[in-house]
Design a protein around this nucleic acid. Structure first.
Length: 1010
RNA sequence: GCGCAUGUGGCGUAAUUGGUAGCCGCGCCAGACUUAGGAUCUGGUGCCUCACGGCGUGGGGGUUCGAGUCCCUCCAUGCGCACCA
C-alpha cells in the first residue's frame, strides 16, 4: 500500500474545511491558549520556503496545546496596507486593492496547502474598512488622551482641560512638547484656536513641526526604523532631514514603561536588548550655564529688549566632571546660536551653519571622524567657579538629542577631546587615572581631582553628590533622557488608513465616532497632486459635512499591525474592536512567533498601543505577548556569478531562442560590481553573426543607481554574449528568467539540470558543459536573505508537489533549532521523506491495512513511552528538531520490533499529529475513528514501562572512560564500588597503581582515581 | 567603539541539573536487488595510527574526581545601537 501524500493531503484539507475543524469559540470550561504568527504582508512574489518555518512551528505548538486540552486561538490575517502595492499601482495604474486581494488569494492557497490549523473565520485584513474603522478609532482615543507623568498613565484630555481651567499648567506633570507656563486666567482668556493649539502639545496623537526623514524618491516621510544607513529600508532611496508639520504619536511618554515592561516578558535577550538600545535610557543631569557675556547680536538688540541673561541648558551623564568643563558646544541648529553670537563672529558662524546644513545626513554619518566647528565669540559662566567658558558650535552635537548642547569635558570624553585637540582648547584633568597627553580618560573609575567639593570621591559617589549640589544650588536637576523619539504617524501616500481628522479654521478636529470608518476615497492617480499635496488631495468632493477638509495623509504601515492581535479575539464585532467578554477570556498572546526584523518597529508599537489601551481600561493586559520566539530566517542561496577560469572567450548563443533579451545585472555592492561585472570585459554583439564584432551598437542602460545597488539593462535582439578572460557574468537572474522559458536550464533544490547541453560554446563553436567543467567555470554563490529582488526565492509549492506538505513540515522543523537562521537546502529531505514512508509501512502489510489488536510487548511499550516522554518535553521547550529525530528513532525501533499493535500505533499517531496532520488523520480514520484526530487526547507517559533494573555503568579512570560494566540499579554506592574494583577490567587497568578515590554516581557513572 | 548572541565530524545538528561527546538525518564507503539509479534494503563511517594507543567541542588558562556545559582571557562570525554627551 503506497503512501500517496497528494491524495491524502487533498482529502483532509477538504475535510477540515467542510467540517470547520479549526473553528474556535470562547469556552470558559477550558483553559485558553493564544498562539499568534506575525501576519504577512501579501507581496506579489507569494510565499517562499522561509515563511512557513514560523507558521509550521506555531501550528505544531497549537495542535499540541489543543491535544493537551487547551482551547487554542490560532488565527491568521494580512498586513495589507503598504508601499509595494502602491508603487505597483503607480507604475501600472492597477488599484492597490485589486493587486492586494489577488496576492491574498495566492497566499491563502499556499497557506492552505501547508495544512495549517487556522480559524479562518477570524481572518483580518488591515485594509478592510471594517477593520481599519477600529484602527481609526484607536487613533481618536490617542488624540483624546494625554500622558500624566505623575500617575504614569494615559488619561482623557478632559481631565487636563479641567486642570487648566482651575490652575493653569504649572502643576501639570505631563509628557508634552515644550510649552510655556500659563495660569488658569490666561487659559480661560485664550481663544478656541489658541486652546486647541496648546492641547496639541499634550495629546498622544498630535500635529507639530518636527524634523522628519523625508524620502524624495518615495515622496513620503519615514519613521526612524524605516531608515537604515541614511537610505530608506524599502527601496534604498536617499533620505533627508526636513522640517514638516506632521502627525506624530507620543510614544516617548511610554519610554520608561516600555523599558521596564521588558523585564516581565519572556522574549529573547537579544530582542529585548535591541529594544533597550532603541529606547536608549540614560541618566544624568540637566545643567544650566548662564551666558556670561551676552553681547546681543545686532538683530537681537533691535528685536528684544529683555536683558535677562540667556541660559544654555546641557544634558550630561557625567555631572561628576563638571569642573573639567573647558568649553560648551551647541548643535548648529540650536536656537540660541543666533542670539549669542558676537558681531565679530557672525559671518563665520553663518557660514558654518550653512555648511553644516548642506552636509547631508549620509555625509555626516560617513565621515564621523572629520572634526568641524566654529567659535561663537560668546562665553558662558561656570556655575561653580564663575570662570568664563567659550561657546562653540559643532556638528558633532546633535540637535535632536538631549538639549542640543553639551558641556565639553575634553579630559574625559573622547569626542570633546578630539574637538579640543583640533581647535587647541584647554584640557583639564578631573578624574585621576589616565594620561591626558595621549587620549581622554573616559572610564568611570578613579578618584575625582581638581574639583572643589568633589575631590577624593570616586566617580559613582561624585555623580550622586554633584547632582545633589547642582539641584540644591539651582544650577540644574537630575534628568533621565531617552533616545526614543516620538513616532511620525502621517504618510504622504494613498494606500493606508485615512487619518480621521478634519480641519476647521486651520485647527484639527477629531471625526465623530459615528463617522467611522472614514473610507479611503477613490482617486484618479496614486500620485501627489500638482500642488504637492498627498494623493488623497485628488479625491473629489471629499469633505467632512461637505465643507471641512479632511487630513490628507494616511497612517503608516505599522498602524494596523499595532493592535491586530486584539481583533482576532472577536473579528466580526461591528460595535466594538472586540467585546469585553472576548478580551477578558483570551487576554494576551501566549506564544508569538515572528522574525527579529520587527524588533524595534512593530514590536515596540504593539507594546505601546497595548499599554495605551490598558491605561484607558479597554483591555485587561498591558503587554501584548507573554512569550515571543523569533524564528530564524531561511536564507536563499544566490548563484552570484560565473567566474571564467581560463582565458579563452565564451559565447552564449541566445540567437533564435529569444526575440529580446532583457538581461539585468545586479550586485549588492559597488565592490561586487567592480569584481564581477566589468563591461570592459563583457562585449555584446548585435545580430547572430559572430564575425560582426562591431561593439558600438549595443545599448547598456544604467537603470538604477543607488547607494548599495547598481543595475544595468542590456537591450538587444538575438544577442550572443562574449566574455573574455576573467570576466564574470552575474547569472542569478538570468537563470531564473531562463527557467521560466523552460528552454535553457533550470535550478531546483540546489541541483543544476539541463535540458539542452549545447548552450555554451567557445568562440570556435565547441560546446562546453558549463556545469561540470571546472576548468572553464566556477560558480560563485552567496547566502543572503530570500527575497524577490535577489532572485533566490524557493517556493514551497514544488517541495509539496514532490514530497508532500507533511514532509515539508517535518523537514523545516528537522533543519535545526527554530530560532536559528540557515540557508535553504534540500539535502536532507530524502531522510524525512523516507521516515514518513517507514512510519506508513508500520500500519500496512502486503495485503493492506494491518493494525493488530493484540496487546503490546513490554519492549514495544517501552519504546512508546520513552518517545512520549521525550517528545512532550521537547514540545514544552519548542525543540521541534529533536522531536522529529525522536520520532525517527521510535519508528526505527518499532520497525525492528515489527510492531503493528494498535496499543502502540494509536498513541504514536496522536503524538505525531501536530507535525504531520494529514498523514495522521488518514491513519486515525483507518484505525476506525470517525472524529478528527485534533479532538483526540494527548497520550501520557507511564513511567512504569520505563523502569530499568540494570545499567551499563561507564567506568572511567582519572576521568577517561575505559570500560563498561553492567550492574543492578538497586545496588548501594558501596556495592557498586566493590563490584567495579573487583572486576576483571579494573584489575587489568589498575596494574601496579593503587586506588586513591572512587566516585560513584548511581545510575550514571563510576570514576576511579589512581 | 558599546551591547547581545553564536562557535561541536565532510554537512545540518544532538547531548534537559557538570557525569560514556557526536543521537537523528544528509553525504561518503562496502554489499544486496537491479538494464539503469537521484529507487529500496543491509553494514560501516570524528581525526591520527597496520595496530597498541593517542588526540578531539574556536585558541589559551583555571575550578573539579570529572567540563561542550562553570569562571577568566583572547579570536572569529552574526545581529542591534552608534559623534546619544
Amino acid at each position: 500500500m503506497e503512501y500517496n501524500f497528494t491524495e491524502i493531503e487533498k482529502k483532509w484539507q477538504l475535510f477540515w474545511q467542510k467540517q470547520q475543524t479549526y473553528r474556535v469559540a470562547i469556552d470558559a470550561s477550558r483553559p485558553k491558549f493564544y498562539v499568534l504568527d506575525m501576519f504577512p504582508y501579501p507581496s506579489g512574489a507569494g510565499l517562499h520556503v522561509g515563511h512557513p518555518l514560523g507558521y509550521i512551528a506555531s501550528d505544531i505548538y497549537s495542535r499540541f496545546k489543543k491535544l493537551k486540552g487547551f482551547n487554542v486561538l490560532h488565527p491568521m490575517g494580512y498586513d495589507a496596507f503598504g508601499l509595494p502595492a502602491e508603487q505597483y499601482a503607480i507604475q501600472t495604474g492597477q488599484h492597490p486593492a485589486v493587486t492586494t486581494s489577488n496576492n491574498i488569494k495566492r497566499y491563502r492557497e499556499q497557506l492552505d496547502r501547508l495544512g495549517l490549523s487556522y480559524d479562518w473565520n477570524r481572518e483580518v485584513q488591515t485594509c478592510d474598512p471594517s477593520y481599519y474603522k477600529w484602527t481609526q478609532w484607536i487613533f481618536l482615543q490617542l488624540f483624546d488622551s494625554w500622558f500624566n507623568n505623575t500617575s504614569g498613565k494615559a488619561e482623557r484630555i478632559e481631565t487636563l482641560i479641567k486642570e487648566f481651567r482651575k490652575d493653569g499648567n504649572s502643576s501639570v506633570n505631563a509628557a508634552c512638547s515644550e510649552t510655556a507656563f500659563f495660569t488658569s486666567a490666561q487659559w480661560n482668556a485664550f481663544s478656541e484656536k489658541e486652546q486647541q493649539q496648546l492641547l496639541l502639545n499634550y495629546r498622544l496623537a498630535f500635529l507639530s513641526n518636527t524634523m522628519v526623514n523625508w524620502c524624495p524618491a518615495l515622496g513620503t516621510v519615514l519613521a526612524n526604523e524605516e531608515v537604515k544607513d541614511g537610505v530608506s529600508e524599502r527601496g534604498g532611496y536617499p533620505v533627508e532631514r526636513k522640517l514638516m508639520n506632521q502627525w506624530s504619536l507620543r510614544i516617548s511618554a511610554y519610554a520608561d514603561r516600555l523599558l521596564s515592561g521588558l523585564d516581565g516578558i519572556d522574549w529573547s535577550e537579544s530582542l529585548k536588548e535591541s529594544q533597550r538600545n532603541w529606547i536608549g535610557k540614560s541618566e544624568g543631569a540637566l545643567i544650566n550655564f548662564q551666558v556670561a557675556s551676552p553681547r546681543p547680536s545686532p538683530k537681537e538688540r533691535e528685536d528684544n529688549f529683555d536683558d535677562s541673561p540667556l541660559t544654555i541648558r546641557v544634558f550630561t551623564t557625567r555631572p561628576d566632571t563638571i569642573f573639567g568643563v573647558t568649553f560648551i558646544t551647541l548643535a548648529p541648529e540650536h536656537e540660541l546660536v543666533s542670539l549669542i553670537t558676537t558681531r565679530e563672529y557672525t559671518k563665520n558662524v553663518e557660514e558654518y551653519i550653512a555648511y553644516a546644513k548642506n552636509r547631508s545626513e549620509r555625509e555626516r554619518m560617513a565621515d564621523v571622524k572629520k572634526i568641524t566647528g566654529q567659535f561663537t565669540g560668546a562665553y558662558a559662566m561656570h556655575p561653580f567657579t564663575g570662570e568664563e567658558i567659550p561657546v562653540w558650535i559643532g556638528d558633532y552635537v546633535l540637535a535632536g538629542y538631549g538639549t542640543g548642547a553639551v558641556m565639553a569635558v575634553p579630559g574625559h570624553d573622547a569626542r570633546d577631546y578630539a574637538f579640543a585637540k583640533y581647535f587647541d582648547l584647554e584640557i583639564k584633568e578631573v578624574v585621576a587615572g589616565g594620561d591626558l597627553s595621549k587620549e581622554s580618560y573616559d572610564a568611570k573609575e578613579g578618584l575625582i581631582v581638581n574639583s572643589d567639593f568633589l575631590n577624593g570621591l570616586n566617580v559613582k559617589e561624585a555623580i550622586k553628590k554633584s547632582i545633589d549640589v547642582i539641584s540644591y544650588d539651582g544650577h540644574g536637576e537630575k534628568r533621565v533622557n531617552y533616545r526614543l523619539r516620538d513616532a511620525v504617524f502621517g504618510r504622504q501616500r494613498y494606500w493606508g488608513e485615512p487619518i480621521p481628522i478634519y480641519y476647521k479654521n486651520g485647527i484639527p478636529y477629531p471625526l465623530p465616532e459615528s463617522e467611522l470608518p472614514l473610507v479611503l476615497p477613490e482617486v484618479d492617480k496614486f500620485l501627489p497632486t500638482e500642488t504637492g499635496e498627498p494623493p488623497l488631495g485628488r479625491a473629489r468632493n471629499w469633505k467632512f459635512k461637505g465643507e471641512y477638509d479632511y487630513e490628507l495623509t494616511t497612517m503608516p504601515g505599522w498602524a494596523g499591525s499595532s493592535w491586530y492581535f486584539l481583533r482576532y479575539m472577536d473579528a466580526k464585532n461591528e460595535l466594538e474592536f472586540a467585546s469585553a467578554e472576548a478580551l477578558n477570556y483570551w487576554k494576551e498572546v501566549d506564544l508569538y512567533l515572528g522574525g527579529s526584523e520587527h524588533a524595534t518597529g512593530h514590536l515596540l508599537y504593539v507594546r505601546f498601543w497595548t499599554k495605551f489601551l490598558f491605561d484607558l481600561g479597554y483591555i485587561p493586559v498591558d503587554e501584548p505577548a507573554k512569550k515571543l520566539i523569533n524564528q530564524g530566517m531561511i536564507q536563499g542561496v544566490s548563484k552570484k556569478a560565473f567566474k571564467f577560469t581560463n582565458k579563452s572567450n565564451y559565447i552564449i548563443p541566445l540567437s533564435g531562442m529569444f526575440s529580446k533579451l532583457n538581461l539585468e545585472f545586479k550586485t549588492i555592492s559597488n565592490e561586487l560590481l567592480e569584481h564581477y561585472i566589468s563591461f570592459d570585459l563583457l562585449k555584446i554583439y548585435l545580430g547572430s553573426d559572430l564575425s560582426n564584432k562591431d561593439t558600438t551598437e549595443y545599448v547598456i542602460e544604467k537603470t538604477n543607481e543607488r547607494l548599495s545597488s547598481y543595475s544595468y539593462r542590456i537591450h538587444a535582439e538575438n544577442i550572443p554574449i562574449e566574455f573574455s578572460e576573467n570576466g564574470y557574468l552575474n547569472i542569478n537572474q538570468f537563470v531564473q528568467w531562463a527557467s521560466n522559458t523552460n528552454k535553457v536550464f533550470y535550478t531546483q533544490s540546489g541541483y543544476w539540470y539541463q535540458n539542452k547541453f549545447n548552450i555554451y560554446k567557445d568562440l570556435d563553436g565547441n560546446e562546453i558543459n558549463i556545469i561540470n567543467d571546472p576548468n572553464h567555470f566556477e560558480l560563485i554563490s552567496e547566502v543572503e536573505k530570500m527575497s524577490k529582488s535577489k532572485w533566490n526565492v524557493v517556493s514551497p509549492d514544488a517541495i509539496i508537489e514532490q514530497y508532500g506538505a507533511d514532509c515539508l513540515r517535518l523537514y523545516e522543523m528537522f533543519l535545526g533549532p527554530i530560532e536559528q537562521s540557515k540557508p535553504w537546502n534540500t539535502n536532507g529531505i530524502t531522510g524525512v521523506s523516507g521516515f514518513l514512508k517507514k512510519l506508513w509501512r508500520l500500519f500496512f502489510n502486503d495485503s493492506g491495512f494491518a493494525v493488530s489488536d493484540a496487546s503490546a510487548s513490554p519492549q514495544e511499550l517501552k519504546v512508546l513511552h520513552k518517545t512520549i516522554k521525550k517528545v512532550t518535553g521537547d514540545m514544552e521547550r519548542f525543540s521541534f528538531n529533536t522531536s522529529v529525530s525522536t520520532f525517527m528513532i521510535c519508528v526505527n525501533e518499532l520497525t525492528d520490533l515489527k510492531c503493528n499493535k494498535r496499543e502502540i500505533l494509536e498513541p504514536l499517531t496522536i503524538l505525531i499529529a501536530p507535525f504531520a496532520p494529514h498523514l495522521s488523520e488518514e491513519l486515525w480514520s483507518r484505525m476506525g475513528h470517525k472524529n478528527s484526530i485534533v479532538n483526540a487526547t494527548y497520550p501520557e507517559c507511564n513511567e512504569k514501562y520505563l523502569i530499568e533494573n540494570e545499567f551499563e555503568y561507564p567506568v572511567s579512570i582519572n576521568g577517561k572512560t575505559r570500560f563498561q560494566i553492567t550492574l543492578a540499579l538497586n545496588l548501594t554506592k558501596e556495592e557498586v564500588e566493590k563490584e567495579v574494583l573487583n572486576s576483571e577490567n579494573m584489575i587489568k587497568y589498575l596494574n601496579e597503581n593503587t586506588v586513591k578515590k572512587v566516585i560513584v554516581v548511581p545510575g550514571r557513572i563510576v570514576n576511579v582515581v589512581i
